[in-house]
């Protein structure tokens, strides 16, 4: 099969083995990503534990509408990404381009909402620094906002990297580079995108849902 010959690198015995190696490599990378984020999550847990009330009050200053809309956008983009990977596994390059472009569109929408949210924080003097307006009942609110910007900011960087990776995948698919036998790059880009989604799944309750019932 000529397709197989082209897809198989010389240091692998079979396509199966090559595919397995690529997936394990990607999961190893994702494990380092988990640890990358986990330092921030650990910091959040400790300060949330120490300054419980300040965090409750400060979290009410975040906009739950932006947060919920963004969660819905990212979850839906994960669906279109999964459909893109599905199309790649069937070797339908045109469909891959279409699904990945929709996913990029959702990612861009996420960034726009995030930008609007940051702008609101900027206007309300909620960005830590000289212009930060302290909240009288919550003396440690500034720690919440430090963590908020560090965590959502790092996540936003990952979204932007994702847009870059997906653009390359769309370009390759437009050039008919994938088929039933060779589609691993799209699969791995999909893994990365779903990971970014998972990080947000945890950021959403930790930032927006702490204390909404009052």
């Amino acid at each position: 099969m000529p397709e197989t010959k082209r897809a198989l690198a010389e240091h692998f015995e079979t396509l199966e083995q090559q595919h397995q190696a690529a997936w394990l490599g990607m999961w190893t990378f994702l494990a380092t990503e988990i640890m990358f984020f986990s330092g921030l999550f650990m910091g959040y847990i400790i300060y949330r534990h120490t300054y419980f009330q300040s965090f409750e009050i400060a979290s009410r200053h975040t906009n739950i509408i932006y947060g919920t809309v963004n969660t819905a956008i990212l979850l839906t983009s994960s669906l279109t990404m999964a459909l893109g990977v599905h199309a790649a596994q069937e070797g339908r390059n045109k469909a891959v381009v279409r699904y990945i472009l929709i996913t990029i569109l959702f990612a861009a929408a996420f960034m726009v909402v995030k930008g609007a949210e940051y702008y609101e924080h900027f206007k309300n003097h909620e960005i830590p620094g000289q212009a930060f307006h302290p909240i009288p009942q919550a003396p440690q609110a500034v720690i919440f906002f430090y963590l908020y910007f560090a965590m959502t900011g790092l996540h936003a960087v990952h979204v932007m990297v994702g847009i870059g990776v997906l653009s390359v995948m769309a370009w390759l698919a437009a050039r008919q580079r994938f088929d039933r036998v060779y589609n691993t790059p799209v699969e791995l880009a999909g893994l990365y995108w779903h990971f970014v989604d998972i990080v947000w799944i945890f950021l959403y309750p930790l930032i927006y849902l702490i204390d909404r019932h009052t």
């Binding site: 397995q20 394990l24 999961w27 494990a31 988990i34 986990s38």
Partner: peptide, 20 residues
């Protein structure tokens, strides 16, 4: 094997959170 690799990151995360 993929299960093990996927679980490893979370396992160490849980160890860090529990001990801290």
């Amino acid at each position: 094997l993929t299960w093990v690799f996927a679980g490893a990151g979370f396992l160490w995360l849980m160890i860090m959170i529990t001990l801290t």
